[in-house]
Design a protein around this nucleic acid. Structure first.
Lengths: 173, 173
DNA sequence: GATAATCGTTAACCTAGGTTAAAAAAATGA
DNA sequence: TCATTTTTTTAACCTAGGTTAACGATTATC
């Protein structure tokens, strides 16, 4: 049994309206979520209310705040861009399953390894690439992203303002 | 038995001279390294040879290229800033140990969770903070960093040029 | 279908940080 | 210790991207 099977069998189903928060920065929340249906953004807000987007989530993705799982508070908010259905499973349940079943523990290690690769890639992009290169790369990896996500949100994911992204698009034409 | 115990018992010891590479971007390398003694930097080089520093490593830290562990090539280089002694263990050995021992699998999950938290923190800093805020945060977390690491390298870790870091320091005085 | 809200573009102006180069300061090595 | 290399600072100039604001184009909402 792997993580997706576990979550599908034992996870609690929950639906969210468009524009609602699954959790907010500063909340306690030790659940791991699996996206059955919908589109979400994981984002930070600074003291001035400025938004920075960590990632977008689509069907089949999963997410949790690792800080919150480890006894802390959520370092980011999770917001529904579309009507969304999630499955949730508490971290305790997952750890318990891992501590009782070698095969499952192994699939959790695989999951965490693929998470590590994704985060390493994101770190690389933010550290080494210019905003224009990040935009190009995003279009290559997700050519249909602008069908799902507004340009404002894409800009905040790239770490620039919507105005700057509009300029980059103009230059590339 | 946790990961540190395993690596100390079964790891292969290897020493490196100052200014040598443990591995280079593009290498195959499926080892996990544990730093016994020394100081290293993990860094990317772009086509023009420009350097970007992913992280610094000190005694007690461990590192591997997750891309390389998953069958790919190293996405970064690992370079010794001081005379260094490492222990290495192949990923296969670690996975085998995890697949045969629940307690060990559980400690690997802990290790990967703490890695996830670190990477989440770094992503936050690169996405949400200005260079000056990142510098301030680094000084708070590692007040003695400039005893160990040159300002040039600190700048490349922050994602700016040494000239820009010198300017920031000047402004803060 | 009308009204309001949000989104994307453009312009003008500003600032942080990049680039190059040169000189001062510090570390390294024979 | 003296010479060489590496680091750090400073200056001048340049560019990417931020800020604000205005305007049209979409999209939601009633």
């Amino acid at each position: 049994m792997n993580f997706n099977e576990l979550v599908k069998q034992f996870g609690t189903r929950q639906s969210y309206k468009k524009k609602s928060y699954v959790f907010s920065q500063g909340d306690e929340n030790n659940y791991i979520y699996f996206v059955l249906e919908g589109v979400l953004k994981a984002c930070y807000y600074d003291e001035g209310g400025k938004e920075y987007i960590k990632s977008f989530l689509f069907s089949g993705d999963n997410i949790a705040s690792s800080q919150a799982l480890s006894g802390g508070l959520c370092s980011f908010s999770l917001y529904c861009l579309k009507e969304t259905t999630l499955l949730k499973l508490s971290y305790q349940q997952v750890r318990q399953a891992a501590d009782n079943n070698l095969e499952f523990a192994s699939s959790i290690i695989d999951l965490l390894m693929s998470f590590a690769m994704k985060k390493e890639q994101r770190e690389f992009e933010l550290l080494c690439l210019s905003a224009e290169q990040r935009y190009k790369q995003l279009l290559t990896k997700s050519p249909d992203i602008s069908q799902q996500i507004t340009q404002n949100d894409i800009a905040r994911y790239l770490g620039i303002t919507p105005v700057a992204l509009s300029r980059i698009k103009h230059k590339r034409r």
